[in-house]
Structure formats: structure tokens, C-alpha cells
Amino acid sequence: MGLDRRSFFQMLGLTGLTLALGKDAKAAPSEEEAVSFKAVLYDSTRCVGCQSCEFACAETNGLPEPTDVPETGVVRQLDETRRTVINSYETSKGEVFVKQQCMHCNQPACAAACLTKAMFKNQEGPVTWRGNKCMGCRYCMVSCPFDIPKFEYHSANPKIVKCTMCVDRLAEGELPACVENCPAEALTFGTREELIKEARRRIHDDTDTYYDYIYGEHEAGGTSFLYLSPVSFNELGFNTKIQKSSYPELSKGFLYSVPSIFVLWPAMLLGLQQATKDNELKTENDD
């Protein structure tokens, strides 16, 4: 089988196509937009564990009301009917409550993982799910370092369920339901920059109460939910070993290698093929 003009052009076409597709493989979203992200500061020294946020969340999102209460030693999990939960921890400074929900990362692993852009980082900061795009592959769940997205396993039309930072309410100028309904002012809404400053101020003004760390400032490259705590975050069941750079960074190297392979491989393979074919012709002539 020889390489005639036609197959040569076919090959050229194929190489062009591969180049075009190779370029598609861009890396993670850029960091520049991180400045104006909206965020929520959760101050666990103020939280009284009243579950008002859970009730408000359930009401806003049409989910069943919580029936259990935070209890030390029991970790209540997020699931497809609960987008936020309050848990209680016995620590060196007594009982501490911790709220859990989506962290709304600056560079979300779930959005980088999503092959249909169903998981989406809004310009204002919230990470939301768009059902008309999602194909239900659950790669977002595999990738999320905080294990936040949940899946409706028992539905023929399943959804990915997670906190949306009440993106619809934000659009109408309202606060997220949990922030608005917190009677203890444990939740504060604002821009990420403001809230980091506010968190620093609180730590600075009252070093006895606060543990000197803002969880979420750097975790996973920075998140829009920021946490203050009276004790080390280890004591509150947080993953403190989580990397400080963003998660999409981890697959960036691989994705960057794709265009190079797409250029180098076909050229090299074609060269090899031509080289070995020439050998064959010579021996045929010798015969």
C-alpha cells in the first residue's frame, strides 16, 4: 500500500483537524477575576447551632426541613436533600459548631472537570449547576476536594445538588438565605477582599477568642466561603492537608501536553512509515 497523492492530502487534512482540536484543550480559568468574587464569612465563634440557616436553605430551595439536630460525635452529611448542615464538635475550647456547604472555590475543580460546562463559575463568584448541559457523569463529584456535589441516585431524571450561594437571590439584590436568616450574625456576606480584611481584623482584635487562621483564604487556591474558628481546624474535622494551589492546576500539565503530542506524533509516525517503506522498495529492486 503506497502513499499516493490522495492519501497524502487526506493525511494533511487529518493533521490539520488534530491541530484544530488540540488547540481546544485549554487549561484552567485565569486567576484575574478572583478580585471581585462575592463571598461569605462564617464565624464559628458566633454560631449557636440553631439550624436557622438549614431551615432557610430548605425553604428557599424547596427541600425537606431537617429533622435531626447537631450532636457531638455524629457527623451529619450533606446529601441530595441537604445543601448545608451544621455539625457540633467537642474541642479543647468546648462545643463548637461548624457549617458545611459548597466552598465556591476561586478555581473550582468541579467546573474544570465538567466536560459540558454544566458546573459553572459565575462571574460574581457562585459555582452553580446547569441541568440543560449536564450529562450526569459525576466527574465533578470525583474531582471536588471538599466532596460537595451530590447526586440523585434514585431518580430517572437525576440532578446534581449543591449550594448555589442563592445566585438567584443575589441577582435580585438580596442576601443568600442562610446569611439573611442567621440570628447570631455568624454569617457575613460581602466581597472576598472585604471579608478577608474583616476576618483579619476580628483575629487581631481578639486573639484570645480566635485561632489565627482563615480557612478558605488559600485552600484549593482560595474559596468564597471563609471560616474563622476558636480552635485549630484539625479539631473541627476540616481537611487541613488540602493543597494551597488550585485543583485544576493538577491536570494542567497533561492538558498542555496535548497540542504538542498532536503535532509531534503524526509527523514522527509519518516519517517512520516513510523510512521503513523506502527500505522495502530497495530490497524489492535488489531481487
Binding site: 481546544d24 480559568p29 474544570a112 466536560l115 441541568g131 448541559k133 450529562m135 440523585e152
Partner: peptide
């Protein structure tokens, strides 16, 4: 294994290309 298989064409046809996804590359 896809929860919403009717959207399986989204990475191939349309305007929902999640080009930062390794799974996008694998699907193509």
C-alpha cells in the same frame, strides 16, 4: 452510567464545550 444520557451530545455538538476537562478530551 450517565445520569442524564440525553445530554451526551453536549460535548460534541453545541456550545457546551468544557475544554478544560480531561474528560472532554477523552470523550472526543
Amino acid at each position: 452510567d450517565l445520569g442524564r444520557p440525553w445530554n451526551v451530545v453536549n460535548p460534541i455538538i453545541g456550545n457546551s464545550f468544557g475544554t478544560s476537562s480531561v474528560l472532554f478530551l477523552v470523550a472526543w
